[in-house]
């Protein structure tokens, strides 16, 4: 049994302009100790997917459906007190922006101690010792002195380390990291990623990591979900995705990766803007931006199916597999089809 199995997850927000379908039928699963990467453009519903799993969307205007089965229990259907037991204990989350994710008026030690004492029946002193252990583990220099500092006394990278320490403090089985490195500079990014993978080895947690950056995915993920406009466009083991990408949107993402060996001029950007989630395009949601668009794409929504012979590599595109393989080969060689 998978550690977490998400089935047909939908999250819609009621807004003044209408219903925003931020997540519209997303399914995936993740095993113990594995890393799942979720990539996609800004606004494709990556964060909302994870917030829905954690039950952290604003209650007032959210409608969610589908299932998120975690160790046999549906997170979307359980009581709020049971969900609170799981949050921070079995599933922990690291957020996109380390600058605003820590409470400015509490010492970081107190924030870690709170995380521990919410789930463990330990004294303050024991909790503090554990907090210190984690701060050392995430590489905060002179942690025993800095534990009583306030968040504003830390840099962005250090705050993200604190967030990671706080997330790992109760040994969660699943760690959800929502763009943990986006707000940081390149060197710090690399350090944080290494830190997360090292800690994963030590703690044995499964990780869901959200990112815009295929480079990050290549480095840490076992499995990749490519999201486009609230839906899954492609889902494959990481090697497969990089060797034999099936979806034109994935090609676009791969094509826009800077390559040292190819002519920079040929860098491909995906044309146009992501579609509105209030009123998504009919048929395939990617068709208005797709260089390979066919008649069928404008009316029939493609299903998420294996294109070739690997059952664990699914994609939602009407192109035939021969064309896919040919075009994918061009993209990987650094030349996107002239159709774009």
């Amino acid at each position: 049994m998978a550690l977490l199995e998400v089935r047909d997850l939908k999250t819609h927000f009621r807004t003044d302009d209408g219903i925003v379908k931020a997540v519209d039928g997303v399914s995936f699963s993740i095993e113990k100790g594995q890393t799942l990467g979720i990539v996609g453009e800004s606004g494709s519903g990556k964060s909302v997917t994870c917030l829905t799993i954690m039950g952290l969307n604003p209650k007032r205007n959210t409608i969610s459906s589908g299932e998120a089965i975690f160790k046999g229990e549906n997170l979307l259907a359980m009581s709020s007190s049971r969900l609170r037991d799981i949050r921070g204990n079995d599933i922990a989350m690291i957020f996109q922006d380390p600058m605003t994710s820590l409470n400015p008026v509490h010492r970081i030690g107190a924030q870690l101690v709170e995380a521990i004492q919410l789930h463990r029946d330990v004294t303050k002193r024991q909790a503090r010792a554990r907090a210190l252990e984690l701060l050392n583990a995430v590489g905060i220099p002179r942690a025993e002195r800095r534990i009583d500092d306030y968040p504003h006394q830390f840099s962005g990278g250090m705050r993200q380390r604190v967030m990671i320490a706080m997330a790992l403090v109760n040994d969660p089985d699943l760690l959800i990291a929502d763009e943990p490195t986006t707000a940081l500079d390149v060197t710090t990014q690399a350090q944080i990623l290494t830190l997360m993978t090292d800690l994963q080895k030590d703690f044995g947690s499964a990780i869901i990591i959200i990112t815009h950056d295929l480079g990050v995915i290549a480095e840490v993920a076992d499995d990749v979900v490519v999201m486009y406009a609230a839906k899954v466009a492609e889902h494959a083991p990481v090697d497969n995705l990089f060797k034999r990408p099936h979806h034109p949107y994935t090609w676009g993402l791969l094509g826009s990766l800077p390559r040292l060996d190819a002519d920079v001029e040929r860098l491909v950007q995906i044309r146009g803007q992501p579609p509105s989630l209030l009123n998504p395009p009919r048929g395939c949601r990617f068709h208005p931006r797709c260089p390979y668009v066919m008649g069928i794409c404008k009316t029939v929504e493609p299903e998420l199916l294996p294109a070739g012979d690997e059952a664990d590599h699914v994609q939602a595109c009407h192109l035939d597999v021969a064309t896919k393989d040919r075009e994918a080969a061009k993209v990987l060689a650094g030349t996107m089809a002239e159709a774009s």
Binding site: G88, F95, S101, N103, P104, M166
Partner: peptide
């Protein structure tokens, strides 16, 4: 964001 963080800790 830090209020969401607090909820994510299970508070």
């Amino acid at each position: 964001d830090y209020v969401r963080t607090a909820r994510s800790k299970g508070a």
